[in-house]
Design a protein around this nucleic acid. Structure first.
Lengths: 187, 187
DNA sequence: TATAAAATTTTACAAATGATAAAAAGCGAT
DNA sequence: ATCGCTTTTTATCATTTGTAAAATTTTATA
């Protein structure tokens, strides 16, 4: 997905604002398994995914827990750093070789302060992430694991093809063994 | 909590921007049990809580599920309407008599388009809600119900005094019976 | 205070999920 | 194709959580 299309996804940016953003964006390629962001760091960069897929995860006593997947067209940010300049609570790693558009957080923040369209673009972007997250939280609170799995294959079936089941399982809030049981039941 | 303090919570607004916001804000009192927002509506108003406590909830097959509590200083919005002008998926009701600052969504949106400070204020505001929601989602995925309950009494002990346990239970993603069991264990 | 209503806890049993270990299947490199 | 490694499934048992109903406590109000 090209950068113009990605930037236009949620808010119609005027040409000059899009140009201002693009002036700070470069293209990079990262191999599979590359760590884009680490827990405890204030990340200096953010990314837009041209191609490939990534996951965000946090550490737990029993391995890591994936809580977000990003693919073509998605923005990759360390949420706490992006919002408040604080250390992130997540790792983000590539699950495939990825083509990314890279931008310095600092440059985006400067544009927020000077370009009202970019500020509103950033507001919308975080808003859409917020809705997705809130809907997932609600699903976690009152849907069964099986329902959440069925929802997942209904909304993003490609995830099942591209992401290991251990990551899908932790994303759904269950163990991989439980996920296997669910898959066996509905087969 | 006074409106000036609330508006300043997450982003330092210049005087003229704060004035512009306050020009559209009026004070209202709502009784306990009042419904501020309904599922399926595009809400015309948003609120800032001067005093009192409210909850957001969605319908489920087995009663309703609380997924957010708001109290003094918090903003009350229907997330989907605020972000994308679409129908909300939540009800919001007062759990105590509330003093609220009321504003028309439409007026806030107009300010977003004309005042860059308001746009950035709105961006921050949604960002802080996003972090809280993401952290809760992660907790739902890999913490036990007992840990989530202990976290709750550690971070917002007043909630236990002000909110019925059936709402706390659904907020934690468990039944009231489970919550009772947990409370008995740690007693 | 007495009474009714609402909220919370307890109990018993059923269903779902977790932990662990082992088997089976899939995949890449040679 | 085969070997070695990773991923997924299966099986077992323990634990957690859910459901339903009853008992108890708290709250509201006459």
């Amino acid at each position: 997905m090209e950068i113009d299309e990605i930037l236009d996804r949620f808010y119609p940016l005027p040409t000059h604002s899009k140009k201002a953003l693009k002036a700070h964006i470069s293209e990079v390629r990262r191999p599979k398994g590359d760590i884009l962001m680490r827990v405890g760091r204030v990340e200096k960069n953010l990314y837009f995914i041209k191609s490939g897929i990534v996951r965000a995860y946090s550490d737990s006593h029993s391995g890591d827990v994936s809580f977000w997947f990003g693919k073509e067209g998605d923005i990759v940010i360390s949420m706490k750093g992006y919002v408040s300049g604080q250390e992130g609570y997540e790792h983000i790693e590539t699950l495939e070789a990825c083509d990314l558009y890279q931008m310095r957080t600092q440059n985006l923040e400067a544009l927020f302060e000077t370009d009202i369209h970019v500020a509103n673009w950033g507001r919308k972007l975080i808003g859409y992430e917020m809705i997705k997250t809130e809907e997932r939280l609600i699903a976690m609170q009152f849907k069964t694991a099986q329902q959440r799995y069925l929802d997942l294959i209904a909304t993003t079936p490609d995830l099942l093809q591209r992401v290991q089941l251990c990551h899908i399982a932790s994303y759904l809030g269950i163990t991989q063994v439980s996920l296997s049981r669910i898959r066996a039941e509905i087969r």
